[in-house]
Design a protein around this nucleic acid. Structure first.
Lengths: 201, 201, 201, 201
DNA sequence: TATGAATGAGTCTTCATTCAT
DNA sequence: TATGAATGAAGACTCATTCAT
């Protein structure tokens, strides 16, 4: 078989297994059995289980990052809201297409040793930083109210993760109307939950 | 030694280790060494490693649940805002006092086998349900704007988790002004981030 | 079983196997089977195969070193010849008592990785140094003819090793008359092989 | 490429690797990489790793044997001493020219399985036999003193090996004055170390 | 209760060898 | 001849759990 094809095949099976059972509960034996290859063949393509997972994680994180476009505020082109919406839709779409993928990001790569934890943490941190920068800019333009933008950004990313997590658990990763979901999330964070003119008594 | 005291001692040492290194990276050897007991003694107090962790997790989740009071809206007594604030402060306080505790909840118990994942998921789901019920009530009283309360509730819990996670990573679990933090979070979710009269263009 | 007794038991079986088959051809499986213990038990007593062999080698080298006494030249006490003879007899005796022991020293520890090779090389080097120092002293006292004492010392140790090797191969390590052998060796190196008054034509 | 040339090329690279790292630490992968051939190609030229090493060892032993000439005692031609010297010089020269070669003979082929050990042992035994026969002849001609010629022969071969070993370790196989070394060795074994008229007290 | 020696199933990893192309 | 992907037996090592004392 063509090497790069075989490589892809192993990765695919591994994603499924890691997604279903997590890193530790997935053994090389399971992977090679699922991929229908011999023990030694695995090591022809990956240095070890760790390296495989690492590559896989990198792929995912790169994949997500590639779906995000910097929001540009100008008179021409789509509105800021539309651009944010598009980013949200892109990311949710990608993740909803691959349950295993999502599962690894939300659960499978958490709590592993420092290397993995850091890689994931760095990724989420970067995501938080992007949101935060946007909020900071918004504050300067007086579009965003005075508030702790770091905390707000964390809430945005965390909220998104939890919503995706919920989807993963209850709907098996399938989302019916991604656009509606994105819209809801965007409203949630931009307008909060209070009704017009109301403040919590 | 008094049996229940010894039990407690093992649990305490185990929390520290699980918190620092995670479930898989913590071995029975480490636990018994830290607790200063013999190998066999461990199994006099706990059926196995899993059971120990399970008990530990139950303790934590119960501890958190115990800090949350149902918000009662009435003319007497503290305002709804104060009651919510108090709940937030109570929970954050508990978690900030015990880094290991927090670490296990956010990372240590994630991605383990189905049993643990479900237990944790059920807990968070219950938390989401509480928030959602409040929001539903708020909607009926027209305090909360029409929105998908499930998604909003998920965002609230997820946002909170991410904020705590950030604190765990960067400040070692210590929080300077818990009240200010709680206030910021509450505002974030109640009012959103937009400035008065602004909608995203 | 008493730990130190079990340790000894493992070592004994390991010596036999290493002696018969060499380091690489001896597997942990063979050792534990010979010792009648479980896989894990082995690792209770030795960090790994290497550590076991290392300890074993150290024991041997120490054992030999302990049989050698510095030759003291004085008017009282045994003659220098008798002292050298005694050293030779002591060492040959020890080695002839344990075929596996001897086999490891001559073959089993040769050609392994740097750590072992160095340990063995250092030992033989030390032996050479002892002989050389004696020869140097002998030269000062004009008992030893002018010659390259380093080369002479190497020849002595090497000769001894080859003789022991031969015994190992052909007589299974048993030597009938150790004293006679030692005497022959001593004469060989002190007087050479030429007949009186003869020089090689 | 010409088959026999390719064969030679593989052998050459293999000698280097076996010499540097020993038999076990040298993998087929290393050999084919060094030789610049594909995995399968190796097996077109050699049945397996063992066969390669075997052939290599045979080559070496034949090479050494070819440098040794029977010593002929007659009135014409070079003296016995000169003939022995020439043999010594020839062998030492050959070995000193090829460090890998020497390393394999002294360390790399020792302690492997019975086949190799026997081959090497047989070779040294043959060498011992040659020396012994010479000594026996010398005894008949009353040039050699009465002594155990087998032991003397072993000492000669063993001494030579140890000296070469020392050179390998300390001088990287290079010898400055081979003739002087050979002379020293020859004197050592013919005259012993004692000064004229001295016997060990 | 307490001990800690013993267990062995399970995991990762290596590497000489084969074989379809 | 030459290739290199594929193989799988074999090896080292770990660690939760058991049980005789």
């Amino acid at each position: 078989m063509d090497p790069s094809e075989r490589r892809r095949q192993i990765l695919t099976k591994a994603v499924e297994l890691f997604g279903k059972n997590g890193y530790h509960a997935t053994s090389i034996s399971q992977i090679i059995q699922a991929a229908g290859i011999a023990r030694g063949t695995f090591y022809l393509y990956f240095e070890n289980k760790r390296a495989l997972f690492d590559e896989l994680l990198d792929d995912m994180l790169r994949g997500i990052a590639a779906r995000i476009r910097t929001v540009v505020i100008s008179n021409q082109g789509p509105s800021a809201r539309d651009q944010i919406m598009q980013n949200l839709v892109n990311v949710i779409e990608l993740l909803s297409e691959n349950r295993a993928f999502l599962s690894i990001l939300l659960e499978g790569a958490v709590g592993l040793d420092k290397g993995f934890a850091d890689k994931l943490a760095d990724f989420y941190e970067a995501a938080v930083e992007i949101v935060r920068a946007s909020l900071d800019l918004g504050q300067k333009m007086e579009l965003v109210r005075p508030c702790n933008t770091h905390i707000a950004a964390l809430a945005v990313i965390g909220g998104l993760k939890e919503i995706l997590h919920d989807i993963l658990r209850h709907e098996g990763g399938r989302i019916e109307d991604i656009e509606a979901l994105a819209c809801e999330v965007l409203d949630m964070f931009s307008r909060g939950v209070l009704a017009k003119g109301v403040s919590i008594p």
